[in-house]
Simulated assay, not measured.
Amino acid sequence: MSKNVENLLREICFRIKIKGREVLKDFPITPAQFDLMQKLYFTGEKTMTDLSKMLGIAKSTTTGLVSRLEAEGFAERKRKNDDKRVIAVDLTEKGKAVIDKVILKRIEFVEKVIEDFDDKSKKQLIVLLVKLNESMKDYG
């Protein structure tokens, strides 16, 4: 049972991710850069060290990703007010707009997929997904 649930969730997440990334064809952004942008979008500005840890990549790799995003105007580095030695990275409005487009594409895809579900099935799906998500929070 658990193996089937994991498999289904992995396949669903993969399909939604691929559909959303179709938007990236219009932008000079690699999947690794997009992952970094998503982290910033959902968690706010981060230091290079924090980004490296969150993404599980070397700090030098993170620096390269941020440099390319900054050159394209999707991200910016800024000094922290409380400690001028610390550099934080955040998305620019241009970067946020890309993520917004990806999220919209994902939502449209999910809407299309479930449009033939009756209202009861849609509500049951939401209830079960909320329950699953809440249960996962208990396990980290």
Rank of each mutant, 00 (worst) to 15 (best):
M1H: 12
S2L: 15
K3D: 13
N4R: 09
V5D: 14
E6I: 14
N7M: 12
N7L: 14
L8E: 10
L8A: 11
L9M: 12
R10A: 00
I12M: 06
I12S: 04
I12W: 04
C13G: 10
C13L: 15
F14M: 13
G20L: 00
K25W: 04
K25M: 05
D26A: 07
D26I: 10
F27L: 07
T30Y: 05
P31E: 04
A32S: 09
Q33E: 14
D35P: 05
D35M: 06
D35N: 09
L36W: 05
L36C: 01
L36I: 03
M37H: 02
Q38S: 10
F42V: 09
F42R: 13
F42C: 05
T47Y: 00
M48G: 06
M48T: 14
M48S: 05
T49P: 10
D50C: 10
L51T: 01
S52G: 02
S52V: 01
L55K: 09
I57C: 06
I57L: 09
T62W: 03
G64F: 00
L65K: 00
R68E: 04
A71Y: 08
F74H: 05
N81I: 06
N81F: 01
N81Y: 06
D82L: 04
D82Q: 11
D82E: 15
V86K: 13
V86G: 04
V89C: 01
D90Q: 13
T92E: 03
E93P: 03
K94R: 13
K94M: 08
G95M: 09
K101G: 01
V102A: 02
L104N: 11
K105G: 03
I107V: 15
I107P: 13
V110Y: 01
K112S: 02
D116H: 07
D116P: 00
F117H: 12
D119R: 11
D119T: 11
K120D: 07
S121H: 11
S121G: 08
K122L: 01
Q124E: 14
Q124R: 15
L125R: 07
I126L: 15
L128Q: 14
L128H: 13
L128N: 15
L129T: 11
K131T: 12
S135L: 13
S135W: 11
K137G: 06
Y139W: 12
G140P: 10
